[in-house]
Design a protein around this nucleic acid. Structure first.
Lengths: 211, 211
DNA sequence: TTCGTCCTCACATCATCATGTGATAAATTT
DNA sequence: AAATTTATCACATGATGATGTGAGGACGAA
């Protein structure tokens, strides 16, 4: 069973090279090639490719937008981004948009077929340099963000309970303290976070991963 | 300049193999090797390694906890995780904890030196299989999570304003509608999200990235 | 056309929250 | 020893929120 492929690349020479590489491989079947992504939804729907090769930087709607569009109605098709630059925020954006891997253009002739087979096996072709960027991005999102507001332990506990929607009364009961003490802690939290009500406090804490 | 390395691995045979590989490479310098991670902070502080090789699964404090401890006081040292399994949540946890790459144990003899050089160059050694897991994890965090609660456009707008800490009064003014209409929308939001106050609603929306 | 959903508004009542002003005691830091 | 921080509690008042009940117009789908 051959792997069906469509190609989006605005550079005519490169697109021809890609098409040739695909055509010359007996495992791959070229279903279509396009210089623009305007009709990507219709084309993907009709041609039902297994893999899409997508240039990141294209005029008009760029490759990342096209990926998002495709992912709106198809979670199965594998998408490999093609790019000239390695150290590029675009690559991260493309991954978040739903790309399954990417390939530097300078490696295309040597690794295109291999990359396509990798994504079909559920793996993600990716250079070590990009891998590091991806890892750093994950670590940034994972960090607990250590307390830039100097919340005391008690205040943090109270804030956690608040975020669950508990009333002052419930929190007081939970900690075996009086409601006024809870009030007091919450007043202090507002001061430190520079907010003026529960919702703002919880929202801020949630966004900055303080809980 | 040689690359200073310390090793954490509880399997004595494997640890010896690792040490031999390092010792035999002229670019690498073995600073220490340990079967337990209890003293990891002290050891890293004293030996000042460039790279730490860390087994993920170890008795007592496991490798992931050790990574977290090290990252508390050292963001520079490169950490490579060693693991037998590829499809393992542990690998993701390790990355979030602060590891810079990982190496499957079956590839150690062939790729250890290469992996060490990669992390020192700011790259991340990682198999395509793990790369895919990492990508999927990122995509999960990035997706807007399309409205499993059937919030109407107006309700979503109101919810967004709520999350900024705006009062009913302010929201009403913003939309040029009456306070009672705002109430009405919010009641509806509570029903759909199955919550009973603003804080729960905003907290839930924030966690599930509905905003 | 009828049904359902969405957006709109009104009134009422009780609960809860925000804010201010104090105060005491223990623990920690200086 | 003195100062600061943390955790605790009290009282008071006005504002805001939660909940119930009810209803009318607009719009699209069945």
């Amino acid at each position: 069973m051959q792997i069906g492929i469509i190609v989006y690349e605005d550079n005519n020479n490169l697109r021809e090279s890609l098409c040739n590489l695909i055509t010359f491989s007996k495992d791959l079947l070229l279903l279509g090639n396009f210089s623009r992504t305007e009709l990507v939804e219709q084309q993907v729907t009709e041609l039902k490719p297994d893999v899409i090769l997508m240039d990141i930087d294209m005029p008009g709607m760029n490759g990342i937008e096209a990926v998002k569009k495709v992912r709106h109605f198809d979670q199965q098709v594998q998408i490999i981004m093609l790019t000239v630059f390695e150290d590029n925020q675009h690559v991260l954006d493309a991954i978040c948009a739903g790309a399954s891997g990417y390939l530097l253009k300078k490696y295309i002739s040597d690794h295109l077929v291999e990359a396509i087979q990798q994504v079909m096996q559920g793996e993600a072709p990716m250079s070590p340099g990009i891998a590091r960027m991806v890892i750093q991005c994950m670590q940034k999102n994972a960090r607990p963000a250590i307390n830039p507001y100097n919340l005391t332990p008690k205040e943090k506990q109270v804030l956690t309970h608040l975020s669950k929607g508990n009333s002052y009364k419930l929190i007081a009961a939970n900690f075996n303290i009086s409601i006024d003490t809870v009030r007091s802690h919450i007043k202090s939290i507002y001061l430190k976070l520079k907010v003026h009500n529960q919702v703002e406090a919880v929202s801020k804490a949630s966004q900055e991963k303080l809980l």
